[in-house]
Simulated assay, not measured.
Amino acid sequence: MITRAPAPGIREPREEAPRRGIARRLARATRALATPLLPDDYLALVNPLWSTRALRGRIVATRPVGHATTELTIRPGAGWAGHRPGQHLGIGVEIGGRRHWRTYSITSAPGDEHLTVSVTAVPDGSVSTFLARTAAPGELLTLGPAIGDFAPEHDGPLLALTGGSGITPILGHLAGGAGTATGADTVVVHSGRGERVHGDDLGRLAASRPRLRVHEHDSGSGRLRPADLDDLVPDWRERTVLVCGPAEMIDEFSAHVAEAGATCLVERFRPPEPVAEGTGGRVTFTASGIVAEADAVTPLLRAGEDAGALLPSGCRMGICHTCVGRLRSGAVLDLQTGELHIADDTTEADDAVVVRTCVSAAAGDCRLDL
């Protein structure tokens, strides 16, 4: 560090330094007032949670709820529109100078002052590991809106079949009143190995709620099977069945329930396995001018985010249609359906090809109006 002393024979006035500090502060204030910002931008400068344009949330507490799972308590900002039981939201975090999004089920009750979500650190998962092991009270997050329809349309008896962290959306239903004296008669069959996620919380709820029954199954002694339902919940065919857990469990139980003619709703933490692959290519996002090199199976959304593009997203599983954008030219492949979408510069606006970036991959070079 280099310091410069006043020239010999010249003494700097003692009050000069404070004056320079005041001048710098006035200059910064003047520049801020002259910048073309909206009123909402000024609010965000004072407190990011006051912004209604960019929804933010601040972590106010954390607690372990499993071997690798942490519950985050989040104070949402002014733009939060609330949620319904069983819904989830996107959470964005800045890691390495880039914003990454992941989706988590909301476990708190609608109308609560704070949101709660539970994050399990997965191997090689940079976002989940950061949120579950590093993020602390005071951390500022970007939030998406609450989305999802993992809830019955009508009141009535419920059966929740869950595995591992699949218990989290069901906790959202319980927080919303299921299993209380006035709520629907609810049975939870929860499967896990060893220490179960939110095991203590589930036990406390079962002990305090008259219309809630909980059966915990240790998968270390064998997998839970559809054939077990007749013994565990003899009237399961008369209930609305909610299933959330590993993909194999969801597929197995939802098929069994559907075959019996009962109502079944499923919640997947990951999209179904792709049925097709693109060819890869160069993807240009016209709004920002960012260009991403995408391989045959990486969704356009992730390729763009990895290249530094800020793109709209929601469930990231092709359900909510938040991430849609117009295909300006080129071709992309829907990884879930195998449908090829093609457009060129002559495509009229009325015939615009709209694609879901979270479940579509490049099939050659393409440009998107995002």
Rank of each mutant, 00 (worst) to 15 (best):
A5S: 15
A5N: 12
P8K: 02
G21C: 08
L26Y: 09
R28V: 12
R28M: 14
A29N: 11
R31W: 05
A32P: 00
D40S: 03
D40E: 04
A54C: 08
L55R: 03
T62H: 04
P64R: 11
G66W: 04
T69H: 06
T70K: 00
I74Y: 10
R75L: 10
A81T: 15
R84D: 05
R84T: 02
Q87L: 04
L89S: 02
G90H: 04
G90T: 05
I91T: 07
G96A: 06
W101Y: 14
W101G: 10
Y104M: 08
T107R: 05
E113W: 04
T120S: 11
G125K: 07
T129A: 13
F130R: 13
L131W: 01
E139P: 07
G148Q: 14
A151I: 12
G156C: 02
G156R: 13
A160S: 11
T162I: 02
T162W: 02
G163M: 03
I167N: 04
H173C: 02
G177D: 05
A181R: 11
A181F: 11
H190C: 01
S191V: 02
G192H: 05
G194S: 15
G199E: 08
D201S: 14
L202R: 03
G203K: 12
R204K: 09
S208H: 10
G220W: 12
R223A: 14
R225M: 12
R225S: 06
R225K: 04
E238F: 15
V241T: 10
V241E: 09
G245R: 03
E252N: 08
A260H: 05
A262M: 01
T263A: 14
C264E: 09
L265W: 07
V266W: 00
E277C: 11
G278Y: 08
T279Q: 03
G281W: 07
V283L: 11
I290Y: 06
P299A: 03
G304R: 13
G304P: 06
A309Q: 06
S313W: 02
R316Q: 14
M317W: 03
G318I: 01
I319N: 13
G325D: 03
A331N: 06
L333K: 01
E339W: 02
L340E: 11
D345L: 12
D345G: 09
T346K: 04
D351H: 14
D351S: 06
V353L: 10
V353R: 11
R356W: 04
T357M: 05
C358T: 10
A361H: 09
A361T: 05
G364T: 12
C366D: 03
L368Y: 07
D369N: 14
